[in-house]
Amino acid sequence: MAYYDSLFNGLGLRVWCDAEPGSANVSMASLLAKTNPDTANTGPVFPFPSMDELYQACSSFPQSRDFTAAVETGFLNIKDVLKSVLDPLTQPLSWLLEFALFSFLTTPWWIIIPLILWLVWYVCRSVNIVAFVTLSFVFLGFIDHLDAALQTLAIITVCTGICILFGVPIGIAMAKSNPLERALIPLLDLLQTLPTFVYLIPLIFLFSVTEPKLYGIAIIVYAIVPVIRLTNLGIRLVDQDVVEAVNAFGMSPKQKLLGVEIPLAMPNIMAGVNQTIMMSLAMVVIASLVSAPGLGVLVLRGIRNLELGVGLIAGLGIVLLAVILDRVSKAAIARVSSGQTYR
């Protein structure tokens, strides 16, 4: 007899318990118990009153498997509604990603690499960094990893661009409104603390794995947090004496935002962009689980097939990309900040 029988008897629920047969779900523990009757009742002396334990005493009581099943049905029930809203909204993301992947891969290497180098030069004006980027790309090309690296880069470019497009305005709105800040901070905290894999679970149900927006959304939701946070912080940290001065000269809110607040917050916003880029890179590797192309796929292959060399070399490529992205964006920050000195 189960440990909690007397509880249900005492509460006078015995009739209810035996009235209908319990759920059809069979737990692993009870299966084992059936095949091996000796261990059936050798549980702990005072078992925790968990759902499964209570179920043993009363078959009308739900098992914990029913609970997870209910969550699943609940999600599947709203899935169609959610999908009908989200699908058209996010479709442009798929197009953008497809377009970026297509154009990065079909442009001949002797155009795309100089283009990237020119961009690096334009952003940070540093010979050392351009030289390092050149060497890295030559190396990646030489070991036939250029395409994978470019795919990764294409995804990061699109996702970071979208993060900035949405993150900066959200950050500004947060800086202007205390209630909005109070409402968003717990959400941002949540997004940052959720393990990266957890993002993928609901997304897999919502979108088909063949659609690029599946991993696009996962990356964006994960990487947008720092740019929002640091834009908010940057705008709030703008010297209030300066803000007062431009108010005294009659600046409109728009003139103030574009001419004073955003320029003065720029070092902080750029620091947020730097973190966003690095987090996109981290997520794009994990997103290869849901068909994101690029170096992550090779790492995954290394793990799945125990191809040590493939995994390690792809990992090295990711490290190179990470160093490049970090150096370039930090050099850009330094260039932006050098125009300003803080007392």
Binding site: D239, A245, V246, A248, G250, L264, T341
Partner: peptide
């Protein structure tokens, strides 16, 4: 705003200049 733009100007204890603008652009604010 119009009054502040044309009717009055202000000088501050901590100067409160725009650090990212040249002296000329500050004066022309």
């Amino acid at each position: 705003r119009e009054k502040r733009r044309t009717g009055m100007s202000m000088v501050f204890q901590k100067f409160a200049l725009l650090p990212h603008r040249s002296v000329l652009d500050n004066a022309a604010l």
